[in-house]
Each structure stands twice: as structure tokens, then as C-alpha cells.
């Protein structure tokens, strides 16, 4: 059989990546949080920074972490996946630390951050998201070393 230039593509043509399959949903939710955390922090820092400086700076930091996780999960290269693991880990540590801090020391948080009360203002999605992110990345490390 002669080889045709238009030979049917192999089944693996849609190369599995951290942005395909369930990762498509993960990237969508990360993008949403990247946008909302960054936009909210920007408005708060620009209009009423003195109200709750710690809370607003933490929100801005959260926004940067979400942006980094979104971009690296969407890129999906081995290097990007390593940065994504770090981003999701920082995110998980952040939501746990800020969550506990916000409950213990309410005076520092007169206004909420994304991570206050373990993300209770956002339906606890900020708490669940990094766990799914890390599980997804681990699944990839096992499947495609």
C-alpha cells in the first residue's frame, strides 16, 4: 500500500495534555479565579487600600498564583507542569494558612480575601481547586514521565 500524505491520523493525534480532558475544566476554573481575584484585588487596592491592606495584598498574591497555575496548566510542557505543581502547592498552603489566620485574627481581615475562611466566600472552591490540580498533575507524571 502506498503511503498517502493524507493518511488517517493516529488515535493519539489529540495529544493528551494537562489542558485536555478534565484539564479543560480545570483550566477554565483556574482562569476564572485568576481573573476575579486579580480584578477584585486591583479595585480594592486602588480605591480603599487602607481599609484592609493585608487582606488586599493577599488577594493580589492569590491572583498572581492563579494566573501562574492557569498559564502553566494550559501550556502543559514538562517545565510548565513543574511550575504548575509549585503554583498549586503554594495555593493549597496559602488557602490553609490564610484560612486559619483569618479565623484566628479577625482584626487583620476587616474585608475578605479569596482565601479567607478557607475560601468560604467562594463556595470553598479555592480549597478544593489546588487538590484537584495536584491530583491531575500527579496523574500526568505517572502516565507520561
Amino acid at each position: 500500500m502506498p503511503e498517502h500524505a493524507t493518511a488517517p491520523e493516529p488515535a493519539t493525534s489529540q495529544a493528551a495534555s494537562t489542558r485536555t480532558g478534565p484539564g479543560r475544566v480545570l483550566v477554565a476554573i483556574y482562569a476564572l479565579f485568576a481573573l476575579s481575584a486579580t480584578a477584585r484585588a486591583s479595585v480594592q487596592i486602588a480605591t480603599k487600600f487602607d481599609n484592609a491592606p493585608v487582606a488586599y495584598l493577599l488577594s493580589a498574591f492569590a491572583g498572581v498564583v492563579y494566573i501562574l497555575a492557569t498559564v502553566t496548566l494550559a501550556a502543559g510542557s514538562p517545565a510548565a507542569r513543574r511550575i504548575a505543581v509549585i503554583s498549586c502547592s503554594v495555593e493549597l498552603a496559602g488557602v490553609l494558612a490564610v484560612g486559619a489566620w483569618s479565623l484566628a485574627d479577625r482584626a487583620t481581615f476587616p474585608d475578605a480575601t479569596v482565601w479567607s475562611g478557607f475560601g468560604s466566600g467562594y463556595g470553598f472552591v479555592p480549597l478544593v481547586l489546588p487538590v484537584f490540580g495536584l491530583l491531575w498533575l500527579r496523574y500526568f507524571r505517572r502516565r507520561r514521565p
Partner: peptide, 29 residues
Amino acid sequence: IAMPLVPVVAGFWGLLERSRWGPAVIAVA
């Protein structure tokens, strides 16, 4: 600005996925 963009962006992102996870993106939207 953001609200009308949600279905548009989700539509494009979901259409890129040729599996059951495309509709899942729409569910998020």
C-alpha cells in the same frame, strides 16, 4: 464587561475539547 464574555469564552474553550469534558466546561459557565 465580564458577564457577557463568560458564555463566549466557555463556548470556544468547550468546542476545542472533543470529549465529554467540552460540555463540562459549559456547565461551569
